[in-house]
Amino acid sequence: MAEGEHKITLVFIINGENFSVETNINAPLTAAVQRALSESGNSGRPLNEWEVRNSAGALLDVTRTVKELGLTNGARLFLSLRVGAGG
């Protein structure tokens, strides 16, 4: 497989703004999430306070690789802070 075939672009939507991140399909999604948070200026909170959902609203396990998650080039992912349950 050519080197370029290992890389895809994911589009993270963070607070309504789009951030495109290129990532290796064999890397855990965490790596792309961290870059997206850094580029968007949201590095102030720990990674475990954020959650990633796909366009269908399904919660993604960020420890899994991009390939394992079945993400394709241009996939739109929603990265948001966990808002917790006040109760």
């Binding site: 607070n15 309504g16 949201n42 102030g44 609203g57 929603f78 948001s80 802070l81």
Partner: peptide, 17 residues
Amino acid sequence: LYRETLNLFSIVMSLWR
């Protein structure tokens, strides 16, 4: 503590969820 990381779009999405 949250205003830098939450805005209305993300709040709307949370409400929807």
